[in-house]
Protein backbone atom coordinates (compact mmCIF):
# COMPACT_ATOMS: atom_id res chain seq x y z
CA UNK A 1 0.00 0.00 0.00
CA UNK A 2 1.05 3.57 -0.62
CA UNK A 3 2.68 4.72 2.65
CA UNK A 4 0.82 8.04 2.60
CA UNK A 5 -2.52 6.27 2.30
CA UNK A 6 -1.36 3.86 5.00
CA UNK A 7 -0.55 6.72 7.35
CA UNK A 8 -3.89 8.35 6.60
CA UNK A 9 -5.79 5.13 7.26
CA UNK A 10 -3.85 4.62 10.47
CA UNK A 11 -4.64 8.16 11.63
CA UNK A 12 -8.33 7.69 10.94
CA UNK A 13 -8.24 4.41 12.86
CA UNK A 14 -6.49 5.93 15.88
CA UNK A 15 -8.80 8.94 16.00
CA UNK A 16 -11.81 6.64 15.70
CA UNK A 17 -10.54 4.51 18.59
CA UNK A 18 -10.02 7.62 20.73
CA UNK A 19 -13.54 8.76 19.98
CA UNK A 20 -15.06 5.40 20.87
CA UNK A 21 -13.00 5.21 24.06
CA UNK A 22 -14.09 8.68 25.09
CA UNK A 23 -17.75 7.94 24.50
CA UNK A 24 -17.33 4.64 26.37
CA UNK A 25 -15.75 6.51 29.30
CA UNK A 26 -18.53 9.09 29.39
CA UNK A 27 -21.27 6.44 29.27
CA UNK A 28 -19.56 4.49 32.03
CA UNK A 29 -19.19 7.59 34.18
CA UNK A 30 -22.89 8.33 33.79
CA UNK A 31 -23.84 4.71 34.52
CA UNK A 32 -21.61 4.63 37.60
CA UNK A 33 -23.81 7.22 39.31
CA UNK A 34 -27.28 5.86 38.56
CA UNK A 35 -27.29 3.94 40.81
CA UNK A 36 -23.99 4.01 42.64
CA UNK A 37 -23.09 0.39 43.44
CA UNK A 38 -21.03 0.43 46.63
CA UNK A 39 -21.30 -3.31 47.19
CA UNK A 40 -19.95 -4.11 43.75
CA UNK A 41 -17.15 -1.56 44.27
CA UNK A 42 -16.07 -3.34 47.45
CA UNK A 43 -16.05 -6.68 45.61
CA UNK A 44 -13.85 -5.29 42.85
CA UNK A 45 -11.58 -3.46 45.32
CA UNK A 46 -10.93 -6.84 46.85
CA UNK A 47 -10.14 -8.44 43.50
CA UNK A 48 -8.07 -5.54 42.18
CA UNK A 49 -6.57 -3.90 45.26
CA UNK A 50 -6.20 -6.52 47.97
CA UNK A 51 -5.15 -9.27 45.59
CA UNK A 52 -2.38 -7.04 44.19
CA UNK A 53 -1.06 -6.13 47.62
CA UNK A 54 1.47 -8.92 48.11
CA UNK A 55 3.11 -8.51 44.71
CA UNK A 56 3.29 -4.73 45.23
CA UNK A 57 4.85 -4.92 48.69
CA UNK A 58 7.31 -7.61 47.66
CA UNK A 59 8.37 -5.83 44.47
CA UNK A 60 8.66 -2.50 46.28
CA UNK A 61 10.89 -4.00 48.92
CA UNK A 62 13.20 -5.62 46.38
CA UNK A 63 13.37 -2.52 44.17
CA UNK A 64 14.18 -0.40 47.21
CA UNK A 65 16.84 -2.91 48.21
CA UNK A 66 18.51 -2.69 44.81
CA UNK A 67 18.42 1.10 44.95
CA UNK A 68 20.06 0.89 48.37
CA UNK A 69 22.78 -1.39 47.08
CA UNK A 70 23.53 0.57 43.92
CA UNK A 71 23.19 3.91 45.64
CA UNK A 72 25.54 2.86 48.40
CA UNK A 73 28.28 1.65 46.07
CA UNK A 74 28.14 4.88 44.08
CA UNK A 75 27.88 7.24 47.04
CA UNK A 76 30.48 5.47 49.18
CA UNK A 77 33.15 6.39 46.64
CA UNK A 78 32.69 10.03 47.60
CA UNK A 79 32.08 9.33 51.24
CA UNK A 80 28.53 10.56 50.78
CA UNK A 81 26.62 7.57 52.15
CA UNK A 82 24.43 9.98 54.09
CA UNK A 83 22.72 10.90 50.84
CA UNK A 84 21.47 7.33 50.39
CA UNK A 85 18.07 8.05 51.98
CA UNK A 86 17.58 11.11 49.82
CA UNK A 87 18.49 9.29 46.63
CA UNK A 88 16.31 6.26 47.28
CA UNK A 89 13.39 8.46 48.33
CA UNK A 90 13.51 10.76 45.32
CA UNK A 91 13.74 7.96 42.78
CA UNK A 92 10.99 5.94 44.45
CA UNK A 93 8.58 8.78 45.05
CA UNK A 94 9.00 10.63 41.79
CA UNK A 95 9.42 7.79 39.30
CA UNK A 96 9.65 4.17 40.27
CA UNK A 97 6.76 4.14 42.75
CA UNK A 98 3.97 5.18 40.39
CA UNK A 99 5.51 3.67 37.26
CA UNK A 100 6.42 0.22 38.54
CA UNK A 101 3.14 0.02 40.47
CA UNK A 102 1.22 0.84 37.31
CA UNK A 103 3.14 -1.75 35.29
CA UNK A 104 2.58 -4.42 37.92
CA UNK A 105 -1.09 -3.60 38.43
CA UNK A 106 -1.64 -3.58 34.67
CA UNK A 107 -0.20 -7.07 34.48
CA UNK A 108 -1.88 -8.37 37.59
CA UNK A 109 -5.28 -6.65 37.71
CA UNK A 110 -5.72 -4.89 34.35
CA UNK A 111 -5.39 -8.18 32.50
CA UNK A 112 -7.84 -9.79 34.88
CA UNK A 113 -10.37 -6.99 34.36
CA UNK A 114 -10.09 -7.30 30.58
CA UNK A 115 -10.32 -11.09 30.58
CA UNK A 116 -13.18 -11.01 33.09
CA UNK A 117 -15.33 -8.57 31.12
CA UNK A 118 -14.50 -10.18 27.77
CA UNK A 119 -15.47 -13.63 29.00
CA UNK A 120 -18.65 -12.30 30.59
CA UNK A 121 -19.48 -10.91 27.18
CA UNK A 122 -18.59 -14.15 25.41
CA UNK A 123 -20.71 -16.25 27.79
CA UNK A 124 -23.66 -13.86 27.40
CA UNK A 125 -23.53 -12.75 31.03
CA UNK A 126 -23.63 -9.12 29.92
CA UNK A 127 -26.66 -9.81 27.72
CA UNK A 128 -28.14 -11.63 30.70
CA UNK A 129 -27.78 -8.45 32.74
CA UNK A 130 -29.39 -6.38 29.99
CA UNK A 131 -32.31 -8.80 30.01
CA UNK A 132 -32.74 -8.07 33.71
CA UNK A 133 -32.79 -4.35 32.80
CA UNK A 134 -29.40 -3.91 34.44
CA UNK A 135 -26.89 -1.78 32.56
CA UNK A 136 -23.63 -3.76 32.32
CA UNK A 137 -21.69 -0.49 32.20
CA UNK A 138 -22.96 0.34 35.67
CA UNK A 139 -22.93 -3.17 37.08
CA UNK A 140 -19.66 -4.53 35.71
CA UNK A 141 -17.55 -1.88 34.00
CA UNK A 142 -17.91 1.05 36.41
CA UNK A 143 -17.07 -0.88 39.63
CA UNK A 144 -13.99 -2.36 37.94
CA UNK A 145 -12.85 1.03 36.68
CA UNK A 146 -13.50 2.82 39.97
CA UNK A 147 -11.71 0.15 41.97
CA UNK A 148 -8.70 0.45 39.68
CA UNK A 149 -8.66 4.25 39.97
CA UNK A 150 -8.92 4.11 43.76
CA UNK A 151 -6.45 1.28 44.24
CA UNK A 152 -3.63 2.70 42.13
CA UNK A 153 -2.59 5.64 44.40
CA UNK A 154 -2.97 3.46 47.50
CA UNK A 155 -0.84 0.70 46.02
CA UNK A 156 1.71 3.19 44.74
CA UNK A 157 2.09 4.75 48.21
CA UNK A 158 2.51 1.29 49.73
CA UNK A 159 5.07 0.39 47.05
CA UNK A 160 7.08 3.51 47.91
CA UNK A 161 7.05 2.90 51.67
CA UNK A 162 7.94 -0.73 51.13
CA UNK A 163 10.77 0.41 48.86
CA UNK A 164 12.07 2.86 51.45
CA UNK A 165 12.04 -0.01 53.93
CA UNK A 166 13.95 -2.17 51.45
CA UNK A 167 16.54 0.58 50.99
CA UNK A 168 16.78 0.94 54.75
CA UNK A 169 17.24 -2.79 55.26
CA UNK A 170 20.03 -3.02 52.72
CA UNK A 171 21.64 0.37 53.40
CA UNK A 172 21.50 0.46 57.16
CA UNK A 173 21.22 -3.11 58.31
CA UNK A 174 23.60 -4.70 55.78
CA UNK A 175 25.92 -1.90 54.68
CA UNK A 176 26.06 0.20 57.81
CA UNK A 177 24.61 3.59 56.86
CA UNK A 178 23.45 5.36 60.01
CA UNK A 179 19.67 4.66 60.32
CA UNK A 180 18.87 8.14 61.63
CA UNK A 181 20.72 9.78 58.78
CA UNK A 182 18.97 7.54 56.25
CA UNK A 183 15.61 8.71 57.58
CA UNK A 184 16.67 12.36 57.84
CA UNK A 185 17.94 12.12 54.29
CA UNK A 186 14.48 11.02 53.15
CA UNK A 187 12.69 13.69 55.14
CA UNK A 188 14.94 16.56 54.16
CA UNK A 189 14.89 16.01 50.48
CA UNK A 190 11.21 15.22 49.87
CA UNK A 191 8.67 17.99 49.74
CA UNK A 192 4.96 17.67 49.34
CA UNK A 193 4.63 20.16 46.50
CA UNK A 194 7.55 18.96 44.38
CA UNK A 195 7.54 15.23 44.99
CA UNK A 196 4.64 13.70 46.89
CA UNK A 197 1.81 15.58 45.16
CA UNK A 198 3.26 14.75 41.76
CA UNK A 199 3.69 11.14 42.73
CA UNK A 200 0.10 10.76 43.87
CA UNK A 201 -1.24 12.60 40.83
CA UNK A 202 0.81 10.36 38.57
CA UNK A 203 -0.57 7.24 40.23
CA UNK A 204 -4.10 8.59 39.88
CA UNK A 205 -3.62 9.35 36.18
CA UNK A 206 -2.15 5.89 35.59
CA UNK A 207 -5.13 4.43 37.46
CA UNK A 208 -7.59 6.23 35.19
CA UNK A 209 -5.71 5.22 32.03
CA UNK A 210 -5.27 1.57 32.95
CA UNK A 211 -8.90 1.39 34.11
CA UNK A 212 -10.09 2.77 30.78
CA UNK A 213 -7.77 0.64 28.67
CA UNK A 214 -8.59 -2.62 30.43
CA UNK A 215 -12.36 -2.17 30.61
CA UNK A 216 -12.58 -0.90 27.04
CA UNK A 217 -10.66 -3.83 25.61
CA UNK A 218 -12.67 -6.29 27.68
CA UNK A 219 -15.99 -4.75 26.71
CA UNK A 220 -15.28 -4.54 22.98
CA UNK A 221 -13.58 -7.94 22.63
CA UNK A 222 -15.08 -10.36 20.15
CA UNK A 223 -17.22 -13.02 21.73
CA UNK A 224 -14.93 -16.02 21.67
CA UNK A 225 -11.83 -17.43 23.32
CA UNK A 226 -9.58 -15.60 20.86
CA UNK A 227 -11.32 -12.35 21.76
CA UNK A 228 -10.69 -12.92 25.47
CA UNK A 229 -7.01 -13.60 24.94
CA UNK A 230 -6.61 -10.62 22.57
CA UNK A 231 -8.25 -8.33 25.11
CA UNK A 232 -5.81 -9.46 27.78
CA UNK A 233 -2.74 -9.06 25.59
CA UNK A 234 -3.82 -5.67 24.28
CA UNK A 235 -4.50 -4.42 27.78
CA UNK A 236 -1.08 -5.40 29.07
CA UNK A 237 0.82 -4.07 26.05
CA UNK A 238 -1.11 -0.83 25.56
CA UNK A 239 -1.43 -0.24 29.30
CA UNK A 240 2.30 -0.62 29.91
CA UNK A 241 3.40 1.50 26.97
CA UNK A 242 0.87 4.20 27.86
CA UNK A 243 2.18 4.25 31.42
CA UNK A 244 5.77 4.75 30.27
CA UNK A 245 5.00 7.39 27.65
CA UNK A 246 2.62 9.38 29.85
CA UNK A 247 5.16 9.18 32.66
CA UNK A 248 7.80 10.82 30.50
CA UNK A 249 5.57 13.73 29.55
CA UNK A 250 4.26 14.14 33.08
CA UNK A 251 7.77 14.32 34.49
CA UNK A 252 8.84 16.76 31.80
CA UNK A 253 5.87 19.05 32.42
CA UNK A 254 5.84 18.74 36.21
CA UNK A 255 9.44 19.77 36.71
CA UNK A 256 9.26 22.71 34.32
Amino acid sequence: MNPVIGLGAWTVKVIGAFGRMTSFAVQTAVASMRPFRGRRLVEELYRIGVRSLVIILLSGFVVGGVLGLQGYTSLARFGAEDLLGSGVALILIRELGPVVTSLLVTGRAGSSIAAGIASMNATEQLDGLRMMSVNPLGFVVAPNALAMILAMPLLSALFILSGLLGGYTVGSQLLGVDPGRYLTGIETVTTFEDDVAGSLLKALIFGVLVALISTYHGYTASRNAQGVSDATTNTVVIGSVTTLVVNYFFTALWSS
Binding site: I93, P153, A157, I186, T190
Partner: peptide, 23 residues
Protein backbone atom coordinates in the same frame (compact mmCIF):
# COMPACT_ATOMS: atom_id res chain seq x y z
CA UNK B 1 -10.15 -6.88 54.45
CA UNK B 2 -11.09 -4.26 51.87
CA UNK B 3 -11.64 -1.70 54.63
CA UNK B 4 -8.27 -2.53 56.10
CA UNK B 5 -6.60 -2.24 52.70
CA UNK B 6 -8.07 1.20 52.08
CA UNK B 7 -7.16 2.34 55.60
CA UNK B 8 -3.56 1.15 55.35
CA UNK B 9 -3.23 2.74 51.91
CA UNK B 10 -4.59 6.04 53.21
CA UNK B 11 -2.17 5.94 56.13
CA UNK B 12 0.68 5.35 53.67
CA UNK B 13 -0.43 8.34 51.61
CA UNK B 14 -0.79 10.48 54.73
CA UNK B 15 2.63 9.42 56.02
CA UNK B 16 4.19 10.24 52.67
CA UNK B 17 2.47 13.63 52.49
CA UNK B 18 2.79 14.83 56.06
CA UNK B 19 5.77 13.13 57.58
CA UNK B 20 8.05 12.68 54.59
CA UNK B 21 6.73 15.48 52.40
CA UNK B 22 6.41 17.86 55.36
CA UNK B 23 2.96 19.04 54.32
Amino acid sequence: VVGLFVAVGMVAIAYMSFSLGGL
